[in-house]
Design a binder for these strands. Structure first.
Lengths: 148, 148
DNA sequence: ATAATAAGGTTGTTTAAACAACTACAAAGA
DNA sequence: TCTTTGTAGTTGTTTAAACAACCTTATTAT
């Protein structure tokens, strides 16, 4: 069983250490700007800012969160008055999630902080290398998910 | 404010989607082999297999887990009879974590499943590109952590 | 038309991440 | 010596990940 790369280094990549660091940095930058959101909550809002009024299932698909996760994220976003659940009148199974005025109003501020944090993260890294990272991560994701 | 790469794609990388997929795949492969461990528990055991009897603080440093996290991981590993806490006689603050015979015995089996899962993950990906991913992730991690 | 199947959401449970607050002990300084 | 400071570990809380079980409503098949 020949090993052409270091398994340990690989595991370090996939273990989520850098992902956690990004999460911490983003949360810290949110707090500095008095934004009381988590990364996951922001991700949900990010979908809604482009596609207001979509279903929870759509949110689940577009954020790679499972259905129970979306239920709880929406619960918390509702408590903060950022979104509202509107039952669909045609299909009573569906709940359409709409941004409140408050939810709409924070878009620019939040995106600024997100972009700023991403810039910090990739400081001094060539875009060609980022492109390779992006493609490789997509391929790893496909390798792991499509075989099921 | 010029954007030379897609912020959205970047966020997808750093959001942890691929990391979660790897976690799921590893857990699934563990279950198929009747190994009742999580990725985090395995990571702790991985340190102990090389450095049995180290302190919880060492485990925290080497696994990028915070101290409360290690406390609970060790709690669970102790319940499964995989490790034991031994208070240090010289420095009464320290607790040295030792593998039990059971904890030692599963090393080969667990590492086989981990390696197998890593191979699935990076199937058909050139090692040069993995190297770039590794280096880039290290740099992102440094960018985010060293500025604090 | 009715039964079976599928889809959308919710609830419950375990494990982990992050952070604050705390206890116990050790080391350093006055 | 005694006080201060630092280190190691624990407990508590909120949020999220994963997964199973469940309820309700739609759709499909017979």
């Amino acid at each position: 069983m020949k090993t052409i790369y270091s398994i340990e280094n690989l595991h370090t990549i996939l273990s989520g250490r850098t992902h956690s660091a990004f999460n911490r940095a983003l949360l810290s930058n949110f707090r500095k700007n008095n934004i009381l959101l988590t990364r996951e909550q922001w991700t949900v809002l990010g979908v809604l800012w482009k596609n207001d009024g979509c279903t929870q299932q759509t949110l689940a698909n577009q954020t790679s969160t499972d259905k129970p996760g979306i239920t709880r994220l929406i619960d918390n976003l509702e408590k903060e008055n950022l979104v509202e659940r509107h039952p669909d009148t045609n299909d009573k199974r569906l709940k359409l999630i709409y941004l409140t005025p408050k939810g709409k109003s924070i878009e620019e501020e939040v995106l600024n902080v997100v972009n700023q944090t991403l810039k910090e993260a990739v400081k001094d890294i060539e875009s060609e290398r980022l492109q390779i990272v992006k493609e490789t991560f997509q391929q790893i994701y496909d390798n792991l998910e499509t075989k099921k």
